[in-house]
């Protein structure tokens, strides 16, 4: 059965569409667009706020905690530190600070590279070792936040990792662009202390990329853990 509208009803329907439905519809779409665009910015802020206001039990890597003590005076002449003085952190624990003065990088270093850790600082891969153990250290950071200036790093630049048990300095030797699944880009079985930093490449990419920018640095000072 066909429904016939009077001219007044048609006029009312047109007004309803023009002045209510269309604006509401576009408001909803506009909100979705703004939310989607600003997700990369909102998420780190939310992670930070949750870290301070949440009373969750921080144990699983996505919940962050800290054991880092900023005001420890370290003896520069100390060559070794007893292993009993070293705290092995849990996943998601801020245990050190990492700085690269040449490119103005200054960030907390977390044990574990969960999304929460990478949103709040630099994350150390849990299958690599902490400074001082004489083994590879693999750390990563987002290319649009803490490791954005990694693109300007050069051989010879110094990287400093400050822990509760000592200050470690590394000197950049080379950089390399490789695929994320190129296992030759890192050697976690090595018996020497190499700092390997990486982030997504290119730095200005709009979408996900399969390439990573790797930076390699050799240890130049810091106490050996015995």
């Amino acid at each position: 059965m066909k429904i016939h509208f009077s001219s007044n009803q048609k006029h009312t329907l047109k007004n309803l569409l023009a002045y209510i439905c269309m604006p509401v519809g576009f408001c909803v779409l506009g909100y979705l667009l703004i939310y989607t665009v600003f997700i990369p910015i909102i998420k780190p802020a939310l992670s930070l706020s949750e870290m301070f206001i949440s009373d969750a039990d921080f144990k699983t890597g996505e919940d962050l905690t800290s054991i880092f003590e900023d005001n420890i005076q370290h003896e520069e002449s100390k060559d070794t530190v007893n292993i009993s003085e070293v705290q092995i952190p849990s996943f998601g624990t801020h245990y050190a600070n990492i700085s690269i003065p040449a490119i103005s990088v200054e960030a907390p270093l977390y044990y574990g590279d969960s999304s929460a850790a990478l949103s709040s600082g630099i994350g150390q891969y849990n299958g690599s070792f902490m400074p001082g153990f004489g083994r590879p250290i693999l750390v990563s950071g987002h290319n649009n936040s803490y490791f954005n200036s990694l693109q300007y790093i050069e051989a010879g630049d110094e990287v400093i990792i400050t822990t509760n048990y000592g200050v470690y300095k590394y000197q950049v030797t080379e950089t390399k662009i490789a695929s994320y699944n190129d296992k030759s880009a890192y050697d976690l079985s090595a018996k020497e202390e190499t700092l390997i930093m990486y982030t997504c490449y290119p730095f200005d990419t709009l979408g996900l990329t399969s390439q990573r920018f790797f930076v390699y640095a050799e240890k130049i000072s810091g106490p050996e853990i015995v």
Partner: peptide
């Protein structure tokens, strides 16, 4: 038993960049 994570077989190399693809697609659709 206390919920401490001791082992994970997640990928070694993580995604460390933002993905703006959803935003671009959404903008195009709008």
């Amino acid at each position: 038993a206390d919920g401490e994570l001791v082992f994970s077989d997640a990928a070694v190399i993580k995604t460390t960049g933002a993905d703006y693809t959803p935003a671009i697609i959404t903008f195009a659709v709008v």
